[in-house]
Amino acid sequence: MSSYLLETHGLRKRFGDKLAVADLSLALRPGEVFGFLGPNGAGKTTSLKMILGLLEPSGGHGLLLGKPLGDQGARAKVGFLPEHFRFPDWLTGRELLHFHGRLYGLGGSLLRERSEALLARVDLLDAAHRPLKGYSKGMLQRAGLAAALLNEPQLVFLDEPTSGLDPLGRLLVRDLIRDLRAQGTSVFLNSHLLGEVEATCDRVVFVKQGRVVHEHVLGAHEAHRDVRIRAHGMSDALCVTLASLGEGFVRDGDRASLRVDGDSRLPQIAAAIVNSGAALFELDAAPASLEQLFLAVMGTEQRPG
């Protein structure tokens, strides 16, 4: 029996000549909030669809809750909010939850109670009797989120859950994810909003061209600092010294940057510059952000334009 809720090995998907997912191998542990990051076209949504049985993989294999991908029984314990949540817009919010609940095999008072609790949780109780065609984008997203949680899932897949939400809506989703984690529910989060990911995830993987290229445990590197330097007269020898004090050293004229493992490195950097005879004008250290890590891992060729 696998100790992972989800694991994939060499998952691959080809559409004609186009290889959408090359070789996806990942694993998700119970109770974990897992971030799935990558640029547009990295194969994230295709991967998600293969995991959920909406697409048949061209190769590789995987297990979802210990069952092969696409297994009907496993889907009973899984929730899913697609990136573009579409719905029969003639339903009311409450009817939507009842319909989805019945597809999960729920019924009677249990379904009614869960629906009302979730409508209240996503702040849609007052609008629950109105048809969905009158809902705003954010309200629809929240209705979809409630529908994904009806079965009290062990694992929830959220594909861009905060897109279209205002700051209050984002806060609500962030709190909801934290509540899920507190209940022991695992979350697989696919989002472009790195701030959201940083605030909610325990671990993230970066996907590039359908492959996991980097894994990062959030919170484990809180001491890391991104250091920016402006100094005149930096010699090659100084650059070698600075590069040895951290990682990712880059120099551009009088400016340089690197990442260090803690504040203790800052006096060493300042001393190295001054002792080399260079004129130090600026030394700035900021906590390492996921966005910078993302850019470093993905490379500049992934940036649009």
Partner: peptide, 14 residues
């Protein structure tokens, strides 16, 4: 085409 079936087919039904 609209994607409505994604949420339906991801439920535990054949």
């Amino acid at each position: 085409a609209s994607g409505v079936l994604q949420t339906v087919a991801s439920k535990p039904i054949a």
